[in-house]
Nucleic acid binder design. Structure first.
Lengths: 244, 244
DNA sequence: TCGAATTTGTGCGTATGTATT
DNA sequence: AAATACATACGCACAAATTCG
């Protein structure tokens, strides 16, 4: 199929329809880079302006994202992360019909720096258990979390975390049957090189950073986590009135 | 006052104390850039390594933030913005003992683009009232908000917004005695040049972007807002259990 | 730190077809 | 039928952002 002139349909509209079909059929998967404007102009045998008119329409409709100096990209479906009191990685991912998986990057006992100490409510320099974990959805990285737990309260947690796949299970073994988020702070910054590499993020795209404190049923602090999310692949969502 | 050698106190500790005093007394106000390491080394008549040791300590304590290739900066006090169901700009700022003020950058009737239409639940192209507003705390910009309201529902809102200083007052005149946030989506991206200029933000620092839908007591959609916040000056905070 | 190459963004002028007046 | 307005399409040039060595 190619563009036909004088068919009563403007060339740029034909291009919109063609690209829309190619995107929705998966020929251009989410996140993929489209050919350059010059390339598309050659392919459709039109002027670059005509291609731009089509891209503008696609961009307005949200199917395509155009970035100056970089190119045009198929919009990636955004993962909405609901910051409710109950936030579990695997539940979040499965709700989006994707397959959750994880990768423990670091797991050790260490001491709390001032920030972590303040979050956990322990003395600066207290022993803590640190686990760093990369979260993936359908194999694509969506979160990089540093989880901190007071070593004094959970003697066997280090081994439990090493044995189990999920944090929830390991905490259950340590006697915490349920936990919830008490507070979440959200900010953003540019990624460190290592973070960009792990999250497969361009260096010029920011990471969302959330700091959260988890508490058990008695409101006692269980853990403190710092999570980094790649933008714009992940959005954090807050709904005061929670609905099933 | 200057550093003295062989006084039983390490040089770098003296430098830490001196800089700490200068920062807390306001000689180096929040956000200010400190002299370069070389400059500090000249001033204290020490090697640059010694200055670095002092800056490392200050950085660890959270008083100073060191950025590779840019310089060292006095940490700015972070404005925590609580994303509760009730979010009012002036209340937020006053809770931090700062003086709120605002600046209307744009106020007009226009048509809804797809994103706004989806947020408001109206047809794409429906008439809406748009107000763009820069929010300031003690004269420093802390938010840049685009507020959208359905023109059909609020015939006189355009004039009310022009006359009143605050959104809450204008909405009250339009018959909405109270409203609350139903949902908030948070993401981050690099600022547009205009946004960076208005928020007085370096171009390499991201903006937090929140999209929120406001509803009245009957759960009817009142407005849709897109707000941009400068990082790291502003943090968004979510507490599931609301406390007075 | 710098410049070259690549890619998108913007503006100008021109031409043609289509619909309205 | 002529005049006018608008949408479409092309060509050229340069600006701005990104990438890469």
């Amino acid at each position: 199929m190619t563009t036909t002139r004088g068919a009563g349909v403007a060339l740029w509209r034909q291009i919109v329809e063609t690209l829309e079909r190619e995107i929705t059929t998966g020929e251009h998967p989410p996140g993929a880079r489209l050919p350059t404007e010059a390339g598309l102009a050659r392919r459709f045998e039109v002027n670059r302006h005509t291609v731009r008119r089509a891209l503008e329409e696609l961009s307005r409709g949200g199917l395509v994202r155009v970035e100056q100096g970089r190119g045009s990209f198929v919009t990636e479906d955004v993962l909405d992360y609901a910051i409710g009191s109950r936030a579990r990685f695997s539940e979040w991912i499965r709700r989006h019909n994707k397959e959750p998986s994880g990768q423990v990057l670091d797991l050790r006992e260490t001491v709390a720096d001032p920030e972590v100490a303040a979050g956990l409510g322990v003395q600066k320099g207290a022993r803590i258990i640190l686990m760093e974990r990369l979260g993936l959805a359908d194999g694509r990285p969506v979160s990089l979390g540093s989880h901190h737990y007071p070593a004094a309260r959970f003697p066997g947690l280090l081994e439990s975390l090493g044995a189990h796949g999920t944090i929830t299970e390991a905490l259950a073994e340590a006697g915490v049957s349920d936990y919830r988020r008490r507070i979440t702070r959200v900010s953003a910054r540019m990624p460190l090189p290592r973070e960009a590499a792990l999250l497969r993020l361009p260096r010029n795209r920011p990471v969302l950073v959330s700091e959260s404190v988890d508490v058990d049923q008695d409101d006692a602090v269980v853990g403190f986590g710092i999570a980094r999310y790649p933008t714009p692949r992940v959005q954090l969502v807050f709904e005061p009135t929670e609905r099933s």
